[in-house]
Design a protein around this nucleic acid. Structure first.
Length: 474
RNA sequence: GCACCCUUAGCUCAGCCGGUAGAGCAACUGACUCUUAAUCAGUAGGUCGAAGGUUCGAUCCCUUCAGGGUGCACCA
């Protein structure tokens, strides 16, 4: 315990000696601070208000003081004067510190310099802080502390609070958009006996009573498609996925994903949905379709560019992916390993190396090589390609969608081939295959990385800045 | 997992060629009844991330470790 704490604990004790509870109780504050300030007019001078919040700055002047009090919506200035609150109360005021949470009763007025202020008639200590807040001007800068002690980051860095408030809005608008389009929000298992729907490494856990290994889900896909079989027709789930892999500015081991399935639609339908939903949210957030991201200005005005995977390869790598020798040459040129890889896998490595970084403006990359898409229906006009798109923006993969493969025997074949690779621990979700045999309607399916979407829409470079409590070492 | 960089007061940061630590804010004492990064005077505050090594002497050079950042790898 340092001297700051000790000094403040002494003040806590003094408040108790004065018969006050330094940790308050229910306090009926009338309005948010932002509303009070915005709605103030000269006629409102003298109106009584009751406000509550954290003391952010203090400017004492002997027998008076100005305090800035902040709540979630904004801040307001309070003016405390010895003559107004009385001598006893003014002595109590002297025990207040930056960071304390207080309530203030008073009358509204405008100061000489035009700031809306509460002229305190009384105040209440609601929570006495025994640690000092960070520096008032610079806030909390240390990124490690900002992540580990997000609570301090939130109350001391307005920008951080705003990012998370925007995240909350974005998620709310996505739900609104889908709910208004007849989609049902569902919840499927986070703990799965066989992790499916993607090929990431899972976290393993164990159920004691059943003596059963379980995996934290890497994707909800196979369960959501069971619901299509069940007849729910339009479903979505927005929640956490868990992947036991590296951490980077674009990857957190637990991350939020939305998966959306629409019966009788296809990947074209999913493109339209993606476009209208994301552009709509950008418009609500910024008032226009052009949004800043780093050095870029992303133009989200629909419709967005759609380009075929193989055409992009030609455009940026000068490569015809059917020409296997050319593919090997290109791989060698880029120092991409080709050991034990199929042609399509090498092609995809080249794509990721060469093309992805060029995709800055919103671009739907469509029609992926079928071998890379075990859950996707083949293109009608070419059986080597699948009806899949990935959405790229600012060189970042943001969404992934298919026309879902609903042919049970074909799906079984593709799973068994993949299980042969050992990618899913050799396990095939037989019940999912069983469900398809009852008939799944043709459907479009879409997954959007919510954290990355929030990054793009809030102009944030690191995923850790849009996740309240990102994973850090102990 | 690999490479590079960072870690100094509660917070934000200085610290030269290796000579043993500085500022602002915050705190404490005092002055001040419309300030707003309030002002003025004074006081206190440090295991320089940790452990070892080199040296007469290490915040500074070397090694190891911990945590963090960035890039790479991993990641349909």
């Amino acid at each position: 315990m340092n001297k700051f704490e000790q000094e403040r604990i002494e003040k806590v004790n003094k408040l108790k000696e004065c018969g006050l509870d330094p940790y308050g109780s229910k306090y009926e504050n009338t309005k948010s601070l932002c509303n009070i300030v915005e709605e103030y007019t000269d006629e409102k001078e003298g109106t009584t208000v009751r406000v509550a919040g954290r003391i952010m700055t203090m400017r004492p002047h002997g027998k008076t003081a100005f305090l800035d009090i902040r709540d979630r919506t904004g801040k307001i200035q309070a003016y405390i004067k010895k003559d107004k609150v009385g001598e006893q109360k003014f002595d109590i005021f002297k025990l207040l510190d930056l960071g304390d949470i207080i309530g203030v009763d008073g009358e509204l007025f405008k100061t000489r310099t035009g700031e809306v202020t509460v002229y305190a008639t009384d105040f209440t200590v609601l929570s006495k802080a025994i640690l000092p807040p960070p520096e008032k001007w610079h806030g909390l800068k240390d990124v490690e502390l900002r992540y580990r002690q997000r609570y301090v980051d939130l109350f001391s860095n307005e920008k951080s609070m705003n990012t998370f408030l925007n995240r909350i809005k974005i998620i709310k608008w996505i739900r609104e958009h889908l709910d208004n389009s007849g989609f049902l929000e569902v919840e499927t298992p986070m703990m799965q006996p066989i992790p499916g729907g993607a090929t990431a490494k899972p976290f393993i856990t164990k159920h004691n009573t059943y003596d059963m290994d379980l995996y934290l889900r890497i994707a909800p896909e196979l369960y959501l498609k069971r619901l299509l079989v069940g007849g729910m027709e339009r479903v979505y789930e927005m929640n956490r996925n868990f992947r036991n892999e590296g951490v980077s500015t674009k990857h957190n081991p637990e991350f939020t994903m939305i998966e959306i399935y629409q019966a009788y639609s296809d990947y074209e339908g999913m493109m339209t949905l993606t476009e209208s939903m994301i552009a709509g949210i950008a418009e609500k957030l910024y008032g226009c379709y052009k949004i800043p991201y780093g050095d870029l200005t992303l133009d989200l005005t629909p419709p967005w560019t759609r380009k075929k995977y193989c055409d992009l390869l030609k455009e940026y790598a000068g490569l015809d992916m059917a020409d296997k020798n050319a593919v090997l040459e290109k791989a060698a040129e880029l120092k991409i390993s080709t050991d034990g890889k199929e042609n399509d896998e090498i092609v995809n490595d080249i794509f990721e190396e060469v093309v992805e970084k060029e995709l800055k403006m919103p671009t739907f990359v469509i029609d992926y090589p079928k071998s890379l898409c075990p859950l996707t229906k083949a293109c009608d006009d070419n059986p080597d390609f699948a009806q899949r798109f990935e959405l790229y923006m600012a060189s970042m993969e943001l969404a992934n969608a298919y026309t879902e493969l609903n042919e049970p025997l074909e799906q079984a074949d593709r799973f068994r081939k993949q299980a042969g690779d050992g990618e899913l621990g050799g396990k095939v979700d037989e019940d999912f295959l069983h469900s398809l045999k009852y008939g799944m309607p043709p459907a479009g399916g879409l997954g959007i990385g919510i954290d990355r979407l929030v990054m793009l829409l809030t102009n944030t470079v690191s995923i850790r800045d849009v996740i309240l409590f990102p994973l850090l070492r102990q």
